[in-house]
Computed example of a mutant assay.
Amino acid sequence: MRLYTNYKWILLVISFLVAMQIAGHSFSQPQEAVYLMTAGKRTEISPQEAAVIVQRSVGGRVLSVNHESSHYRVKILNSKGHIQIITVDARSGAILSTR
Score class of each variant (00 low, 15 high):
Arg91Ser: 08
Ala39Gly: 06
Ile14Glu: 12
Asn66Ile: 10
Ala23Val: 03
Ala33Trp: 01
Pro30Trp: 00
Thr43Gly: 14
Val13Pro: 10
Ser92Arg: 07
Ile86Phe: 01
Pro47Ala: 11
Ile10Cys: 07
Ile86Thr: 00
Lys75Tyr: 06
Tyr72Gly: 04
Glu68Ala: 07
Lys80Ser: 11
Ser97Ala: 13
Leu63Glu: 13
Val34Asp: 03
Tyr7Gly: 09
Leu63Lys: 14
Thr98Ile: 15
Val13His: 06
Gly81Thr: 14
Asn78Pro: 12
Ser70Ile: 13
Asn66Met: 12
Lys41Leu: 06
Ser97Val: 12
Val65Phe: 08
Thr38Trp: 00
Val62Cys: 14
Val88Ile: 05
Asn66Tyr: 11
Leu11Thr: 04
Glu32Leu: 02
Arg56Pro: 02
Leu11Phe: 08
Glu32His: 04
Arg42Pro: 05
Gln31Trp: 13
Lys75Asn: 12
Glu44Tyr: 05
Gly40Cys: 08
Ser69Asp: 11
Ile10Tyr: 12
Gly24Cys: 01
Tyr4Thr: 12
Thr43Arg: 12
Leu3Thr: 11
Gly59Met: 03
Arg73Asn: 14
Ala51Gln: 04
Val65Ser: 05
His82Val: 14
Met37Asp: 00
Leu17Ser: 10
Leu36His: 03
Glu68Arg: 07
Ala51Phe: 03
Leu96Pro: 12
Trp9Phe: 07
Asp89Asn: 09
Thr5Gly: 05
Ile76Glu: 10
Glu32Phe: 04
Ser69Thr: 13
Asn6Gln: 12
Thr87Tyr: 09
Ser92Ala: 06
Gly59Ser: 04
Ile14Arg: 14
Pro30Lys: 00
Leu3Arg: 15
Ile86Pro: 02
Val52Lys: 03
Ala50Ile: 04
Gln48Tyr: 05
Tyr4Arg: 15
Leu77His: 10
Val54Trp: 15
Tyr72Arg: 08
His82Gln: 15
Glu44Arg: 03
Lys41Arg: 04
